[in-house]
Design a protein around this nucleic acid. Sequence first.
RNA 1: GGAGAGGUGCCCGAGCGGUCGAAGGGAACGGUCUUGAAAACCGUCGUGCCAGCAAUGGUACCGUGGGUUCGAAUCCCACCCUCUCCGCCA
Length: 432
Amino acid sequence: MLDIQFIRDNPELVEEKSQQKNVKVSIKELLRFDEQRRELLGKAEELRQTRNQQAGATKGQRPTDEQIVSAKKLKDSLTKVEDELSKVETHYLKLLKQVPNVALDNVPVGKTEDDNQVAKTVGEPPVFDFKPKSHAVIAEAKGWLDKERAAKVAGSRFAYVKGDLVKLQFAIIQFIMDKLSDQDFIDEVIAENNLEVSNKPFLPVLPPYMIRTELYDAMDRLEPRDDRYKIDDEDLWLQGSAEHVLGSMHAKEVLDEASLPLRYIGYATSFRREAGTYGKDMEGMFRMHQFDKLEMESLGLAEAGYQEHLFLIAIQEKIMDMLEIPYQLIAKCTADIGKPNAAGVDIDAWMPGQDAYRETHTADYMTDYQARRLQTRVRRADGKLELVHSNDATALPLSRGPIAIIENYQTKDGDVQVPKVLQPYMGGKQTI
RNA sequence: GGAGAGGUGCCCGAGCGGUCGAAGGGAACGGUCUUGAAAACCGUCGUGCCAGCAAUGGUACCGUGGGUUCGAAUCCCACCCUCUCCGCCA
């Protein structure tokens, strides 16, 4: 949610920035309700003041009948004003919540994801002396993926993952957890990219996979609800990404300035209904209802927020470099970064089986937009309270990451070479 | 799932219908004392919203949401959470 004061001060800017995100919300209407709200609030507070003064005057003794009659009258008019106020406030809040975060000025303006820009291309797609297969073909031949039985048990877009593919996944998890919690690795990334950020390592976290409606909504990640799994008879949802449960962890807290940034590397299984994607990416395990993910989440000071965003991207790139997977860094345009985002990038990994770069990572910078409703604040050294700035970024998705590995590292025989950095985590195995 | 206890400020904890935003203690911060520190003593010390350039004023908030009342932290109802015991269970 945006700061209403900011909207009052910059109505044209907010209107324009909302349009750039294809979000239709009338700022004029919002401000009209804001004005009404303040007027009614003033009236209500005046009436309450009178009530409080009268109650104070009769302290300790029963008021006279006359006093009670006039107090009842006062109460009636207060109730009226309060009812009206609550109606106006509900509508006001609904509109305010619809206003998207303001994109930073360096975010490309665009109408659809086609307007995203390739910021850079890293690594050369491998050249094969045979026709590269898709991960689905390789994995099926190896007995790594069983979607038929999964369909029997749970339906489409589920899979039993088996054998060496399971081991590969655990190797990746170990590798990333090791690196992100390692001081030398963090120092190296900062130095290589000339970043001015804290050099605090990440804390590994296994979060809950469910989240309450209230907090999901406050994160502004509940919508579109059609893509979320709701738990029957409970006020709970299955999280669609670890950042949903990591970012909400410190809701309603006041953090110490000295404790920031809080950096977490979470591992969680994420769930998506994939509503409206029927028939899309049905092969293999590219688009699943359930997939594991390693996700970074960071809460920090406002002035450090953008550098932190760049830092998380630098880590994403570093990991891809170490895994030696070719990729493109995509500067997402205003229409594609998402409602709570001030900035966002994707990484698309090269997938030889599809002869295309496909999305594997995303990095989101929310400024204080999420923190405002989550009420995650920091007590500054000078005693002031501020909202934190939040950042999240995929460290590596464990469906699409392994897909990229399988397809880029495939051999003529249908085997898959293990990336060097993962070999120590695979018992030294070089090929699977 | 059953029985019980409880949710009050950064923390502990009192209040159980009337200036209560809330005693007391601790922590923190500022000061006095001290060569310095500790101790002691003095002082400061919640947040949101509304109005205001500001000082400040007003209002709301004692788990959440309703209700009773002239008046609710205090009474009633529902829900959420925590703890203890029993049952079940990886």
